[in-house]
Design a protein around this nucleic acid. Sequence first.
DNA 1: AAGTGGTCTAGACCACCAT
DNA 2: TGGTGGTCTAGACCACTTA
Lengths: 252, 252
Amino acid sequence: MAQTAGNIVHSFSPLYLEVKRLITESLIGGEWKAAAALPSETRLSQRFKVSIGTVRKAIDELVAEHILVRQQGRGTFVATHDRRRLLFNFFHIVGTDGVKNYPAVETLSFRRSALTAAEAAKLHVSAKDNTRALRIRNVLSLEDRPVVLDDIVIGEHMFPGLSADIFRKRDNTIYQLYQTGYGINVVRTAERLSATLADAESAKILGTKTGAPLLQINRIAYTYHSVPVELRKSLVNTQEHEYFSDLDRPAR
Amino acid sequence: MAQTAGNIVHSFSPLYLEVKRLITESLIGGEWKAAAALPSETRLSQRFKVSIGTVRKAIDELVAEHILVRQQGRGTFVATHDRRRLLFNFFHIVGTDGVKNYPAVETLSFRRSALTAAEAAKLHVSAKDNTRALRIRNVLSLEDRPVVLDDIVIGEHMFPGLSADIFRKRDNTIYQLYQTGYGINVVRTAERLSATLADAESAKILGTKTGAPLLQINRIAYTYHSVPVELRKSLVNTQEHEYFSDLDRPAR
DNA sequence: AAGTGGTCTAGACCACCAT
DNA sequence: TGGTGGTCTAGACCACTTA
């Protein structure tokens, strides 16, 4: 990394991406935990032996990806999965009137069982690892009415010791628990949506009728390097709520 | 704009945002048409009497918003609404297997009628303007099978002279027609999704049964300064296709 | 007052494209 | 070869937060 202008080794990639990679690796390694301040840009530029502008460009990208948060005058921090971030980045349900609210989560069940072959493939778990699945079913309510039925599947190996008790007693978001309890930072999700009909069970839970139309969301949540962490199937009663997709940058 | 470091007037906003604003106004004014090259960054920096870095920062944002496209060694261009961009930025339907294809569009009807009060409000049209609506119904097919039923509503005043003939005979995307034919550049959309049931008419068009679950997408398309341009209601048969929402940056 | 991020400048050089 | 965008540096100064 001891490169100056006119002396770029350039095996392949620009310096700032290399710096970004190093910062990312430190994040993965746990050098800076959730909500912690990174060293100042000046210090980072000394550490990596690059100019401050190069550090800024690396951090720019991590901020754009919502992995880091800058606060002028205070510092640069590891983004946390608090309620605010959930609402802005990971929870895409709003009232038909456009109002966004934080959902109340009730855990209906917490079970362990085998991963199916399809699940193992999506979670990049080798079938011969015999990894088991944690299966968590939650109901999300808005204004005291059930709106979303979530079925979460995570690999047991990534969350050693996670129990129903720990899960229920967390005092923040689920991804916050992943982040602070297991060092797993969800940085991106991919979702596929379709329309389906409520079966008897989901209809009952969501307070609607069998055969009512439901929005189905299949989500894969990823941590750094696009490593899959969680599968989640959501069934949404869209009678009074909708899924919004404003493709980033809400206010321009 | 004759500001140098240490002599910033700073009524309120940073220089690069002012430059961005000026570039945007030139885009709105039609100084650079679709696919046209902007002046080089050097020339722009001379024109605005700022450093090249400041111009770059302004353009950075416009590129992030997909309004401009940079090509190293060639120049910076006004992004066009070609099929490629449609597929990556505005068409969110993929096969259940994840395959993305460009849809074939068939126009079922092209009508003129009054705007409803709700539509006028969403299009920021004053009720007393008596603006009429163009209502266009399209079926989008993938692999020769109908998948999406689109109902488009646009204000007649923004598209003077647009006829069914012109609409049908365009040889590119619909937003391309807006852009090159009427100088209206769609730069952003907001979508709200819900699940619904097919009525007899939509079921027939989409080749499914009455009462089948359909994904409904209500879109508002905006041009610069968040001015609404188009309302679009899409009904999607999600038997073999899905809506994807990968929140920007697909590959990280 | 000291420290942090944010803006702006100026200049050198690299990577890529068209001719 | 000349022009374009892309990277990197160095330094000055502004805006904001904390103490």
